[in-house]
Computed example of a mutant assay.
Amino acid sequence: MPEPIPHLSCEIRHRLGNLDIDVAFELTHSWTVLFGPSGSGKSTILRAIAGLAKPQHAKIVLRTANSTQTVADTAARINLPPHRRNVRWAAQRPALFPHMTVRENLQYATEIRNADSGQALDLALERFHLTKFADSKPANLSGGEQQRVSVARAAIAANGRPLLLDEPFTGLDAPLRDALLTDLKAWLAVSKTAVLSVTHDIAEAFHLNAEVIKLHEGRIVQQGVAVEVLAEERARLLSQLSDRPSLSSP
């Protein structure tokens, strides 16, 4: 079988404070996770791909079914602004239109102007567990609810373009997080939208059955399937849980 064509090729060298980021990778899987402790460069890499950070050296190429786009190439003096990059992004802090309801925020993303727009939006609201918030404005939502709207809007707008998610569901309880990730993954599969997300949550990476790029101090130490790359972290976590003293009844 021929090798799959990567949907994202990325080389970044960048100094940020005391951190030297030096990474090069290609992505062919439908969902890839940047995994590592705080300060390892995960979010900076995502921001560089989105065009929100300008590395000292970068060569970043995005591919969809219909196009190939070099969004950054230091040697060729290419550095496209974020709005011209063929990628969609949801940051840690949601940036919703405050004067719009949840439904209107999602409507803006869909850019649907036909008779089926209401049905399409109802499906999106249901899939992202937002139906009961449809007529609420962002100020009336919790931080976690706002983040879910932000992720939903980015996912809807992606429609086959690479999607970047920076810790999309941090802070949610595990059952809701897993349900949202399952529904999000199913939604994106329909449009063949590839995802690069950031997390430091082992359970999230395993639940997604994702490819994992493991980072440490700005370097890639391993890339592969979650069960292999995160085997040590998983064993360490299970050991810590088993070593906890059990609570006995008085």
Rank of each mutant, 00 (worst) to 15 (best):
residue 100 M to P: 09
residue 12 I to M: 02
residue 49 I to S: 06
residue 99 H to T: 12
residue 113 R to M: 15
residue 86 N to M: 07
residue 106 L to T: 00
residue 90 A to F: 03
residue 224 G to H: 03
residue 108 Y to K: 02
residue 107 Q to E: 15
residue 177 R to D: 02
residue 56 Q to D: 11
residue 176 L to H: 07
residue 190 V to F: 03
residue 5 I to D: 15
residue 65 A to D: 03
residue 38 S to G: 02
residue 229 V to Y: 01
residue 216 H to F: 07
residue 221 V to H: 06
residue 47 R to V: 03
residue 42 K to T: 08
residue 21 I to A: 02
residue 98 P to E: 11
residue 62 L to C: 05
residue 244 R to H: 06
residue 114 N to Y: 02
residue 169 F to R: 10
residue 132 K to A: 13
residue 31 W to P: 11
residue 8 L to T: 00
residue 39 G to K: 03
residue 48 A to F: 10
residue 41 G to N: 09
residue 142 S to W: 07
residue 43 S to Q: 13
residue 80 L to K: 03
residue 51 G to Y: 01
residue 4 P to I: 00
residue 44 T to M: 13
residue 10 C to I: 06
residue 195 V to I: 09
residue 37 P to I: 03
residue 118 G to A: 12
residue 158 A to L: 01
residue 113 R to G: 14
residue 101 T to R: 01
residue 78 I to G: 01
residue 234 R to G: 10
residue 33 V to Y: 08
residue 124 A to R: 04
residue 19 L to M: 06
residue 152 A to Q: 05
residue 11 E to M: 04
residue 93 R to K: 14
residue 17 G to W: 04
residue 49 I to T: 04
residue 43 S to T: 15
residue 248 S to T: 09
residue 137 K to L: 01
residue 213 I to V: 09
residue 153 R to K: 04
residue 218 G to W: 01
residue 174 A to E: 04
residue 170 T to E: 07
